[in-house]
Write a protein that binds this DNA or RNA. Structure first.
Lengths: 206, 206
DNA sequence: ACGATTTATTAACACTGTTCATTATATTTG
DNA sequence: CAAATATAATGAACAGTGTTAATAAATCGT
């Protein structure tokens, strides 16, 4: 069975090759300029060959999305060192905003585009590996805040949703140039951080 | 000069025709299926003719976006009857969520897609007629809440931003199927309303 | 070595937004 | 009124997009 194994390995390597080329294109030329043909050019395959390794473009985008989550999760590694869950929540929010502003293309794929969700529904039977990990982090912190009576008790999912909504609302409006209509462009980032801080403070006092 | 006038009028009528056809396509087939060729088919013109009346597709989408805002503004007409600005703010939030969930395609254009913003930057020299009206409504209510000391005083723009962020965060995550990862699908809408209510309540108490 | 299977490619389909050169239609001027 | 001009409309084409069916090349199991 060593042959089948090696074959599977080789197949996986080519998949990785394709994904790395896609990522390279993605970070250099942005989301809109990632096309099957350009990826194929880069890996020196015919465009149709990519369809042997991936079902469609959505599946490739899904994997890029997962890579984005890996980055985000990595940026949250420092969190474990903070013992106070409120402080941890605050840093999580800060990290989230910074990640979004620094990686708008990834953010797009992770939280705005439909493509990755399509793949999840179609084949992964509702499994979103890295995305779910990131959400679990948030829920876990909220739960800990409640356990230690630092915030009012309530439905964890609903409150996590509210917190996530603020952060996502800020980032997505920002990277789509909507916030500039409310605050002068050079004050946008500052106001975003103020909003998050305000949000967590009121949560604390409530 | 009556001739030039009539010409201008006729031109405006054809523009309207094109926009109405676009809207028809838009509400029937959705954002992604609005193409220059399909619009042209519907108005029985050649695709190239549309470029005589509009600079590009973005400009058409921009006008569809403005129509979306007209709908939203219309749904807020009942607000003026409510004297308590906090209650008004609450209804504004409810309306916002309902509008987003009931008109996801319009919402997309108004708050998620880049296209309309591109047109604003390119030609309207930073003017966003209906979008700015909608934002003004929010700021005005927040200001009134502060004036009547119903919420803590602070920078109106920043607090408006936070409130908008919650609402937009909820709607945009919902219509992109992200909230289903946090709450069971059939509880999503309910949780959204709870989040908004919670948000305004904490704002009130803070 | 031969047939079967996997892998890769070519060609094509049905689209997309957009532009250029050309034709048809009005309008204005001589 | 006729000629010249300005406007409006178009057909063909460019350069791309995702995706598929049919075909060729390479690899594998017997």
């Amino acid at each position: 069975m060593g042959i089948l194994e090696r074959k599977e390995k080789q197949r996986e390597e080519i998949r990785k090759m394709i994904l790395e080329a896609s990522m390279q294109l993605f970070v250099k030329e942005g989301f809109e300029n990632v096309s099957i043909r350009k990826i194929a050019d880069l890996v020196e395959y015919s465009p149709t060959t990519l369809y042997i390794y991936f079902k469609d473009k959505n599946e490739i985008l899904f994997h890029l999305c997962e890579m984005g989550f890996e980055r985000m999760i990595a940026s949250n590694l420092a969190l474990v060192q903070i013992e106070n869950p409120i402080d941890r929540l605050y840093l999580l929010g800060e990290n989230y905003i910074n990640f979004g502003l620094e990686n708008p293309e990834y953010y797009d794929l992770m939280f705005i585009q439909n493509a990755p969700m399509k793949t999840i529904r179609e084949q992964n039977v509702g499994h979103w590996p890295n995305g779910d990990i990131a959400l679990e982090t948030l829920k876990h912190i909220i739960q800990e805040c409640m356990d230690k009576k630092l915030i009012p008790t309530g439905d964890v999912a609903t409150i996590s949703m509210a917190v996530w909504a603020v952060a996502h609302g800020l980032v997505s409006l920002a990277i789509r140039q909507r916030l500039e209509r409310l605050v002068e462009p050079d004050k946008v980032v500052q106001s975003m951080h103020e909003s998050i801080r305000w949000m967590i403070n009121t949560l604390k006092k409530a």
